[in-house]
């Protein structure tokens, strides 16, 4: 990592940013070495970027299964740990168990979705990071990691394509 150099190019709109990404790819910068930072969810298709991998749906499914199992435990196992007769009903009636199963499944799924965002996005993260605050005002930034010799070339190309500023990215406290 030490020899890689990080550049942060700031664009004012989507179109020049998309052009810049295309040019960078031609220059031989791999898609994995680029990252787009924006204040609103600009989709990958708009920028011509490969679609992102996300584990959130899988984690949600896993959480749902875990929640379902907890529900099974609560609805069918716990009443048999200490059998208490109420109202002449069976110890593990099925219809109320459906309610318990449903609620626990949903709870497991939603909690794991929430936790999934944290895990996938490495939240919370208070280390210094490459960022400029103008991004939340509508700028789009491209973060490029490249070998130092290429930096000047890339900077020139990006400037030509309408980048407002291209500079060496500094990690800063957000």
């Amino acid at each position: 990592m030490a020899e890689e150099k990080a550049l942060l190019a700031v664009f004012s709109d989507i179109d020049p940013a998309a052009d810049a990404i295309e040019q960078l790819r031609i220059l031989g910068v791999h898609d994995d070495c680029m990252n787009v930072i924006s204040g609103i969810p600009v989709t990958e298709a708009m920028l011509g970027r490969p679609s992102q991998w996300t584990n959130v749906p899988r984690l949600a499914l896993g959480g749902a299964i875990a929640g379902f199992l907890v529900g099974l435990f609560l609805a069918f196992i716990t009443p048999n740990m200490y059998t208490i007769m109420v109202g002449g009903q069976p110890f593990t009636p099925v219809p109320p168990a459906v309610i318990v199963l449903f609620e626990m499944t949903m709870l497991g799924m939603l909690i794991s979705t929430f936790v999934g965002v944290f895990l996938d996005s490495l939240f919370p993260n208070y280390r210094p990071m490459h960022y400029v605050p103008e991004i939340s005002d509508g700028k789009i930034a491209i973060l490029i990691e490249c070998p130092p010799p290429d930096a000047q070339k890339i900077t020139d190309v990006l400037k030509k394509l309408g980048a407002e500023s291209v500079k060496e990215a500094e990690a800063q406290h957000l």
Partner: peptide, 15 residues
């Protein structure tokens, strides 16, 4: 520590 990277947005939107 949210920045708005593509990954963060994708995870958030999916969630």
């Amino acid at each position: 520590g949210f920045r708005g990277t593509e990954g963060e947005w994708t995870h958030l939107r999916n969630a």
